[in-house]
């Protein structure tokens, strides 16, 4: 009898805990369903239609895989995919290298860490459009300070954003300049948690700066490095504002990215069916890129 009573009490307690858990989860689930699941399902659905925003959904009809076929056959899309992948690889590698170097440097400072930290973070605090416009002014072929400086030194000047030789690299530099502080901040926080005793032990064993870095620093922050690389990959893959403001994907499509392509051929022309197909392809590509980290995190 006592045993049954205890079991009943335990069951009630378990049910109450489950109800509480469900109650706590419900608001998040509602937000996720409304803000993430619904738009994703809608986009997936529209990607099989010829939905034009102005004509409305009433006049849209199913075109099966037509949008995907024309997307993959589209030369501009192929160029945009190549540009995006190359840009992402270069930007993430450069940001990781510079961010790590800055984090190690600032972490090693005995004085002035706070000031350095604040100063180095400034570019990341600026909105992307502000950054793009500032750089556009600085790199103007006529009145830009950078060309004037180069001219003063007797060096050749460039039409930075309108020349196929310089446009891609210029946007890359601007993006790296703005996002290095993000990598720096994450890695710097991670470096702060590395115990000084490990470095002391390494020094006693005769390890130099490079050996300490390879055998103590890197193993301690590898989780943060992976997270940083993942976040930067996802973010860089979606690069849009800078390209749109500075080059619009030109010259000759050399700076066109997937998002810029979708904006030009999907949003601007209000061809949301085609745009949705592009958005789905992009989501899949980002998922593939992030799957390595997600798999690791899940295991």
């Amino acid at each position: 009898m006592m045993k049954e009573k205890r079991t009943l009490q335990r069951n009630r307690a378990q049910a109450a805990t489950a109800r509480f858990g469900l109650g706590m989860l419900t608001p998040t689930m509602i937000v996720l369903i409304v803000m993430t699941a619904y738009p994703l399902i809608s986009t997936f659905f529209y990607s099989f239609t010829d939905y034009n925003y102005l004509k409305g959904t009433d006049k849209a009809s199913f075109v099966m895989l037509d949008n995907y076929t024309s997307l993959f056959q589209n030369g501009y899309f192929q160029q945009a995919v190549i540009n995006t992948v190359v840009f992402t690889i270069l930007a993430v590698v450069l940001e990781m290298v510079f961010g790590l170097a800055m984090a190690v440097f600032v972490n090693s400072l005995k004085k002035g860490q706070k000031i350095m930290r604040t100063l180095l973070l400034l570019p990341y605090l600026l909105p992307a459009v502000t950054v793009a416009l500032s750089w556009r002014m600085m790199l103007s072929a006529n009145y830009g300070i950078i060309n004037q400086f180069l001219e003063g030194l007797g060096l050749p000047v460039f039409n930075w954003f309108m020349d196929t030789k310089t446009a891609f690299g210029t946007i890359l530099v601007i993006d790296v300049w703005q996002n290095v502080p993000f990598v720096f901040l994450l890695l710097y926080a991670s470096l702060q948690s590395v115990s000084e005793s490990q470095y002391e032990a390494a020094r006693i064993d005769g390890a130099g700066f490079l050996q300490q870095f390879v055998y103590v620093t890197l193993p301690n922050i590898k989780g943060s490095l992976a997270l940083c690389a993942l976040l930067r990959t996802i973010d860089t893959f979606r690069l849009f504002e800078k390209v749109n403001v500075l080059t619009g994907g030109g010259p000759a499509g050399t700076t066109s990215t997937i998002t810029q392509f979708l904006y030009t051929y999907g949003i601007k022309s209000l061809d949301f069916g085609f745009g949705s197909a592009g958005a789905i392809v992009m989501t899949v590509l980002v998922l593939i890129l992030s799957s390595f980290y997600i798999k690791r995190a899940m295991s």
Partner: peptide, 22 residues
């Protein structure tokens, strides 16, 4: 009605000629 897409295609190809990529 297709003018936006029309300019996207033709303008891009003209840019290719101007920049010497085609």
């Amino acid at each position: 009605a297709e003018w936006t897409e029309f300019t996207n295609i033709l303008g891009t190809e003209m840019d290719n000629v101007i920049q010497g990529t085609k």
